[in-house]
């Protein structure tokens, strides 16, 4: 099985590693396991995994440090396993370059979805011409957004926001990620303007803006465009 994507699991809990291994193998992944930060870093360098699932609480070091060190030399997708209510931690990890996170206790389904998204992003290197997500179509070359084949008029900011979501479809974007992408690195403290634009974007793109299903809020972290269907 030479072509199976290789996933490196860095987690000190054996039970969690075993469940993940079984599930990942059932979903056609090849699994590498590392029970410690040290071992994880070693395998990340020597085994060339396609993605890493990283627990932030490791016995011999901070998972955040592992992430930082990996990011020094590699863009390999990293998905963080975080504990309940660790919003600050999540934001920190995402800003350090993690691709996504799942909160423990996580559902396997959710983790698989995040992993697939992360792997797809890593593979996608060529310019996208057109993006489709359920009823939404974005023509990236002609800047035309269609909802149910009806053209939607967006402001420049709204469109720029949407493009960020499209580029990271299925993945999470922190407030800072979005603001930096739209307004540059110098306006990152006030999030209310971002919130207004998101609300507007939802009004134009969501089926029911009061119950957003496309652009959903990740409390305390940011936003995510879900992949419909």
């Amino acid at each position: 099985m030479p072509d199976l994507p290789r996933i490196l699991l860095i987690d000190d809990e054996r039970a969690i590693r075993r469940i993940l291994r079984l599930t990942l193998e059932a979903n056609d992944f090849f699994v590498l396991e590392a029970p410690s930060a040290k071992d994880g870093l070693y395998q990340a360098a020597s085994e060339h995994p396609d993605a890493i699932i990283l627990d932030l609480g490791l016995p011999d070091g901070d998972g955040m440090d592992v992430l930082r060190q990996i990011r020094e030399w590699s863009k390999i997708p990293v998905i963080i396993l975080s504990v309940l209510d660790g919003e600050k931690e999540k934001v920190q990890a995402l800003e350090l370059g993690a691709d996504d996170y799942v909160t423990k206790p996580f559902s396997v389904k959710e983790l698989m979805a995040r992993l697939h998204v992360a792997l797809r992003h890593a593979q996608k290197s060529e310019e996208m011409q057109e993006f489709r997500n359920g009823y939404l179509t974005v023509d990236l070359t002609r800047r035309i957004v269609k909802k149910h084949e009806q053209t939607v008029k967006l402001t420049a900011t709204e469109y720029a926001l949407l493009v960020e979501f499209v580029k990271n479809a299925g993945g999470v974007l922190t407030h800072r990620n979005l603001m930096q992408a739209i307004w540059g690195p110098y306006r990152t403290s006030e999030t209310e303007t971002l919130r207004v634009h998101i609300a507007q974007l939802r009004k134009k793109l969501e089926i029911d803006p009061a119950r957003p299903a496309l652009l959903i809020t990740e409390s305390g972290v940011g936003y995510r465009m879900t992949m419909l269907d």
Partner: peptide
Amino acid sequence: QWCDIADLISTVVQ
């Protein structure tokens, strides 16, 4: 942080 209550309530419902 400045918060959009509509967004907050929809998140709760979701």
